[in-house]
Design a protein around this nucleic acid. Sequence first.
DNA 1: TACACTAAGTGCAACATTGCACTCAGTGCA
DNA 2: TGCACTGAGTGCAATGTTGCACTTAGTGTA
Lengths: 215, 215
Amino acid sequence: MMKIVDRRAANRQRTHEAILSAAQELVRERRQADFSFEELATRADVSRRTVFNHFPTRDDLTLALCNDILAAVIEDFRRCAMEVPVGDSSRDNYFDAIFTALAATDLPGAIRTIVRILPENETDERVSAIMHQALTLLDGVIRSETMRRLPGTDEFQVDLFVSALVNGLATASEHWLKCGVEIDQASDDDWQPYFHAVITQLRHGHLTPAPPSTS
Amino acid sequence: MMKIVDRRAANRQRTHEAILSAAQELVRERRQADFSFEELATRADVSRRTVFNHFPTRDDLTLALCNDILAAVIEDFRRCAMEVPVGDSSRDNYFDAIFTALAATDLPGAIRTIVRILPENETDERVSAIMHQALTLLDGVIRSETMRRLPGTDEFQVDLFVSALVNGLATASEHWLKCGVEIDQASDDDWQPYFHAVITQLRHGHLTPAPPSTS
DNA sequence: TACACTAAGTGCAACATTGCACTCAGTGCA
DNA sequence: TGCACTGAGTGCAATGTTGCACTTAGTGTA
C-alpha cells in the first residue's frame, strides 16, 4: 500500500468526488437535479456546510456535474479511438476514425442529461452557454487524437478543425433542443441527423449543399 | 438513509475503529503486534499523528486491542446464550446455560491472541494484570444473562457469582500461561481442564475436592 | 395578503486530522 | 564505542470538516 504524500489534498479530493458522485446518483434516480443540498450531503456522507465549501452555489455544482458528464464522454471517446487503427495518415482515414469514435460515445445521452439537470426556468441563452462550455471539454482529447493520427500537421490547421468540430457539435445540440421534441423523450436516433450534418460539413466544407433538412 | 446527529462524533469513532481494525488485521497477519505506528497509519488510511491522537502510547493501543478481542468473545457469548432456552430458573439449569455459552466462545483463542500482542519482554505481573482487566469485560454480559435467567435473585448473590466466575477464568488463564506449553502452539483442548476446574468449583463450591490435576 | 415553512446561502468558531520538525531511546554496525 | 538509523512520542500550526445560527428568497395556504 503506497504511502500517500499529501493526505490533506487526497482527502479533500475524496470528499469532492463523493459529493459529485452522490449528485450523479441522485440525478440518475430522479431524472432531474431536484435534490436539496441537505439530501445531497446525506447521500455523500458529509455535512451540508461541506457541500457549500466545495460548491459555493448550486450553479457551481451544476457546472461541475456537466463537466463530469462530459468527462465520461471523453473517456468513451478515448477508449473507442484506441480501438480504431491509426491507418495511413490520410484525411479521409482520420475523419473516419474521429467520427467513428465520437459516434460510439453516448454524446446524445450526455446532452439529454445536461438538459435535465438544468433548472426548468433556465433561459435558452443560459442552457446554450452551459452546453457550449461543457462541449469545449472535448477540445483537448480531440486535439490529442488529431496530433496522434496526423503527426506534423500545422497547429493552426488542427485548431481550425477542432474548433469547427466542437462548435459544430454545440450548434447541433442547440438545434436539437429547439426541434420541438421533448428532449427527455428523445432517442439517440433523433440526434443522428444533427450529428451527420456536422460531420458532413466538416468533410466537404460549406460550399457543398447542406444535407437534407433535419426537421 | 438516516441523518447523522453528530457527524463529528461519528467520524471520530469511525477513525478510531479504523485504526483498531487495522491493528487487528496486522496482528492476524503477523501473529504478533510488531508493526510500527507508521505501518498502522497507512493500513488504517490515516496519518501517523492521528494514530497518536487516538492512542497516545503504544500501551494504550495494546489495551484497546485486548478489549476488542474480548468484545468479540462477549458478542459470541451473547449470541450463544440466546440460543440456549431460558429453562426453569433452577440453579442447575442456569449453570448449564452460562457454561455452555461460555464454552462455545473462542475464549482460549482470545487468551492466546492477547499473549501474542503483548511485548515479548513484558513481565508476568503485567501480562497477568492485563489479562485480568480484559476478562473483567465479561462481567456485564454475564450479569445481564444471570438477571435474565434468574430474575429476582439477590443482587449481592449475583455479584458473588459473577465475580467468582470472572476471577476464576482470569486465574485459570494465568495458570495456563505458566503451564510450560508455548501458548502460541496451545490448542483449545489444552485450555479445557482449566476451564473445567473453574466451572466445577463454581457448581460445587470449594469444599468439594479439586478435580484431577491440570498438569 | 400575511404568515409559516423550506431550502439556498453565509459567517464564524469548534473540532479533528494532518504535516512537520523535533527529541529521545533503542539497535546495529564499523 | 561512537555514529547512523529507526521508531515512539510530542508540540504546534495549517487545513478541512462540522455545527450552529442567521439571512434571504421562494412557495403554499388560510
